[in-house]
Design a binder for these strands. Structure first.
Lengths: 342, 342
DNA sequence: CTGAGTTGCTAAATTGATTCAGCACTGCAT
DNA sequence: ATGCAGTGCTGAATCAATTTAGCAACTCAG
């Protein structure tokens, strides 16, 4: 019943309604210019419904040159849980606007990027989204002039429209969060300048720390800065151990990301220091981890779903294309409190 | 140069090579029956290369009724990082076999499942993958008889081909890992029977615990069982606290999943107990978390990428379709050691 | 009563690829 | 010289939709 021999076509609907294909097409797409009788329109719609007619997108795409499909090419987005929010945002927004999403992943292999992009072009996607795990500067292989491209969480040397997180503002917000709470002896754990200023590594992470520096300067706070080469929990652990040993007066730590903050928690716990009673901790990203930690980690969320959603809307020309940034919301949990009275 | 006014078609290639469209099609697809001169074939290939010809998949699909596209519909797979390995496996295997992947996500909404499946059917995908976050039993909306379907990490009441993790074997392996290390006083933290036996919740998780029970029974170990309602770190934390307080003789804990194990670590740390010197911990899933914990958590990995890869191969008829299970590899880290001499 | 305008509808072309049927030519045996 | 098979190639149909151009039939003004 539900499964017929072959799926019904426009011609089948026309035959059943006793009308021409033209009429059916016009009614089902309700074209403005068509002047068909209400009776005919009803018959056509009824016939279509009875047959369970669904237009063949291949035929439509052939005729119209549109596929109602957007391509999503990412580097390692599916590998990391938190960035997979990007996929979710893209999928959801595309669906809301009647588009489907063709996915490909390059696993960070530059050759595969070319191959994936070519495969999207071959399949005549209406738009191409390139999603990056880190907000890097990349080189995109040439694409047809008529194919819109938006970079999610990154930039290209060819200066395609792009969406990145508003890192500078987020840095300022998190720094003020600590200084406003009354902290004066604050450790800052961030990357070494090499990482900070290498656009192949990240175009936006530098902004994060410039925002922090500016806010601390304005608040008259001189953070004790630790520059580290990496982002892992192990590094957060070691650095926190070093920091608290050398500077027991520290009452708050602003950490470059949640992973390092996780390490910081472990170090503080081993030192017998309580979060936030003895030491407040704040960081960036809002990984799933941040919620699991005890107490919950106050952090600035990387807005992956929102960035992807905005990018899709730019692709579909619902929003104007350009270089946009999306605010990073502060997720307040329990890891920040005023400093212990000293 | 790279971007022409309109993309070259088969007819353009034919004109440039001075041959018919038929000839071009035959050469480029090197059909067995075609008897074209080597010279003609060379000219055609040269013309195609010069023009950068790429066949229009919409036209091919219209003619052939094949799209070389598979649909991947998931419930909440992108939401959780560890299950996103499923996406990776599907993408990679599909690509290896010249297929692209159309994605949709339902966010667990049953209505959206129907809508997503319909949208895949409309787009005439060659096969449909349905990926589930938990290995649940679901009801799939009717699909055309000629559309192959494979369920990744789940089952359907209609008994579609499916791939699930080999939970029973994994349960046995992890139980033996602890008993073989010499542990006799072992806590087992697992779900309450309601969760265990509800196929709408999971069809395979019950096997996990039956495997554990069987292996412990064979080893003559009588675990101290805690049945909990949920899987969160908070539950792992509380249960561990209760267990170690009531039974200080416990030297090992087998935890239902990594999230609860994370909570167990926190509880043990607060109790002043060291992992693995005082208490060994082992669990299931291998989330990113498991690697971050100090010491690294020994756990049985849910083989998402492998399950997805196998499913794609079943879809494309590279492997026979049926009900398959994929082994869960034991990821040995540092959280298991022999019990302290008592 | 005639010509123009409106209404309601349709035939046929178009999109880009694949494929069936068959044409023109050569070489060979009869 | 004639029939036949094999070789190398092509015209036209086909897939399922959209769209242009235009055909009848009717209304209405002059």
């Amino acid at each position: 019943m539900a499964t017929r021999k072959t799926r019904p076509t426009l011609a089948d609907v026309a035959a059943r309604a006793g009308m021409s294909k033209t009429a059916v097409s016009m009614v089902l797409n309700d074209r403005p210019g068509s002047r068909l009788s209400a009776d005919a329109a009803d018959r056509i719609r009824a016939a279509a419904a009875e047959l369970g007619y669904r237009p063949n997108p291949a035929a439509q795409s052939l005729r119209l040159g549109k596929t109602r499909t957007i391509g999503f090419v990412s580097d390692r987005v599916t590998v990391t849980r938190y960035a997979s929010g990007m996929i979710r945002g893209a999928l959801e927004t595309a669906r809301a606007h009647g588009h489907t999403v063709l996915m490909a992943e390059t696993s960070g292999d530059e050759n595969l990027l070319g191959e994936a992009v070519q495969s999207m072009i071959d399949r005549r996607v209406d738009g191409l989204l390139v999603g990056l795990m880190n907000a890097r500067l990349i080189q995109l292989p040439p694409v047809p002039r008529d194919l819109p491209v938006v970079i999610v969480n990154g930039r290209t040397s060819e200066n395609h429209p792009s969406v990145v997180p508003a890192e500078r503002a987020a840095g300022g917000t998190m720094a003020r969060l600590l200084s406003d709470a009354g902290h004066r002896h604050i450790a800052l754990i961030g990357p070494i300048p090499k990482v900070l200023d290498d656009p192949a590594e990240s175009v936006s992470i530098g902004e994060r720390f410039r925002g922090i520096d500016a806010a601390f300067a304005e608040a008259g706070v001189h953070p004790i800065v630790y520059e580290v080469d990496g982002w892992s929990p192990a590094i957060g652990y070691e650095t926190t151990l070093r920091a608290m040993t050398a500077h027991p007066e520290i009452t708050a730590i602003l950490v470059g990301n949640d992973n390092m903050a996780f390490g910081a928690y472990q170090a503080l716990s081993e030192l017998g220091l309580r979060v936030p009673a003895d030491v407040s901790v704040a960081s960036f990203d809002d990984e799933e981890l941040a919620e699991y930690l005890r107490p919950g980690l106050t952090t600035s969320r990387l807005p992956y779903p929102e960035m992807a959603a905005l990018s899709v809307e730019m692709l579909l020309e619902i929003r104007e294309r350009g270089h946009e940034s999306v605010a990073m919301p502060t997720v307040v949990r329990a890891s920040v409190a005023p400093p212990r009275a000293s």
